[in-house]
Amino acid sequence: MSNFSKAAHLSPATLRHDVHMAPTRDGYGIGVVELGENDERIAVLCADLAESTRSNLFREKFPERFIEMGVAEQNMANVAVGLSLNGKIPFIATYAVFSPGRNWDQIRISSCYNNANVKFIGAHAGISVGPDGGTHQALEDIALTRVLPNMTVLVPCDSEEARKAIHAAAKINGPVYIRLARVATPVFTTEKTPFTVGKALQLRDGDDVAIIGAGPIMHSALVAAHQLVEKGISCRVINLPTIKPIDSDAIEQAARSCRAIVTVEEHQIFGGVGSAITEVLAQTYPVPVEFIGMHNSFGESGTPEELLHKYRMDAPAIVRAVLKVIKRK
């Protein structure tokens, strides 16, 4: 079938209609319970959003290690710091618009400057949050977190990768931000798909253009790459689940062999994944780049599909970006 990279071990159903669907937040809920079973130090703090962040799964299993914080994200971030300085590994969960949105100062000084072992779950990130509208669609959280020294930033592409990211985050001794989405999206990676913090993963081989990005939008990137085969364009697709520390080698290599790049993300293009990629390119091997993402505006209410279409973050938009960037080679 497709030109999937063998090493990626993608689901055979990846491009089929019967591909399994689940939101990335499910991967967190499942992953943190798995962690809790094997490690007494794991604690979960939630700011009055236990069910929608899937922290309720941990609450049911380990009530004595779950702390209800009320709607107080600033206090939540720093109670977690106090716990971490005393041997716990706290995960704090709420919507990304509130954390890191509301409590960025706490994250900057008490977690990052202090190098505290706190894990930040930013749920409901991206335009695909949908009907709640622009207030609730976090499109700035990657920029806010990746600018902070000591912080690791993870953006999983599906619920299975999210589960692995949660396990990986617990092994890091320091602050980690993990970005999650609300809506169910294709689960196209499998248990066998490798996940290493700091490493990009090539999902599809190709030499004309490289599509690089992070989050559930990577599935649209695979769909776009598949459609481009008809036009005789061979796309490399690279999943970049770790935004920080970034895999410079994989990005440079893609630029050298494809000589044109499209970056994809459900985030403002200023300061996000595309920015991180082009920071690497500018210093290693500059090539033409097109940016898929939010172009300096807020979102609005609508279904995820409508919004991804209107704001040009769906597969057809990626196809157009590829055609455009090829002309600039």
């Binding site: 702390i67 600033q74 206090n75 971030a77 720093n78 109670v79 977690a80 710091v81 106090g82 716990l83 971490s84 300085l85 005393n86 041997g87 716990k88 706290p90 100062d105 706490q106 900057r108 000084i109 008490s110 400057y113 202090n114 505290a116």
Partner: peptide, 20 residues
């Protein structure tokens, strides 16, 4: 025990310590 500067943060950290 903990870095501090931006005001209004230490009591939360102490709460985490007491909770631990």
């Amino acid at each position: 025990e903990s870095s501090a500067a931006s005001l209004g943060q230490g009591l939360s950290i102490a709460c985490g310590s007491a909770y631990a």
